[in-house]
Write a protein that binds this DNA or RNA. Structure first.
Length: 148
DNA sequence: CGTTTGACTACGC
DNA sequence: CGCGTAGCCAAAC
């Protein structure tokens, strides 16, 4: 294959980052994707959006018995992306609940409570990753509104 | 070899 | 807040 998602060890990079997610916290495909610098020849624009699916592929490729906590990676909506009712989805939910992650309405996880803020900036720089973007779609604080 | 389909996401209605 | 659409790139049909 000319351009497998695993080029430049993409899967390995994803797994390395996922391994940094502590128990009881969750990340998103997009957040992981945005941390991995674009390989040469790839348009940086829209990179995170493009690679978000590849992160999913990387999760799907995690070998059984691996130390990669794949269950801690969910979609940007705070929900499990696996098909509802599937064995894999049930397993993911059970694993997360065992870590203390709570599901709200419609099986949704609140990033404000369980979202991962990413590895330490020093770790990112040491490993050549970009700092993790915030979770929860929008962090635009209406906090300044409260002043007025 | 063209078409469909993803463990995605942002955006519009 | 839910649903549909567009964009994306590779793998599976």
């Amino acid at each position: 294959m000319m351009h497998p998602p695993d080029r430049d060890g993409y899967f390995g990079k994803v797994w390395e980052i996922v391994r940094q997610i502590p128990a009881g916290r969750v990340s998103s495909y997009g957040q992981i994707a945005a941390m991995i610098p674009a390989p040469p020849g790839v348009d940086p624009g829209g990179y995170d959006r493009v690679r978000a699916r590849w992160v999913g592929q990387a999760m799907n490729a995690v070998p059984p018995g691996s130390d990669v906590p794949w269950q801690r990676v969910i979609n940007s909506q705070g929900q499990i992306s696996l098909p509802r009712g599937s064995a894999a989805a049930e397993e993911q939910r059970n694993l997360l609940e065992a870590e203390g992650v709570e599901f709200g309405l419609n099986e949704r996880i609140d990033f404000a409570d369980f979202g991962w803020e990413g590895p330490a900036p020093a770790w990112c720089e040491a490993h050549g990753y970009w700092p993790a973007p915030p979770l929860g779609s929008r962090r635009k604080g209406p906090d300044q509104l409260s002043m007025f």
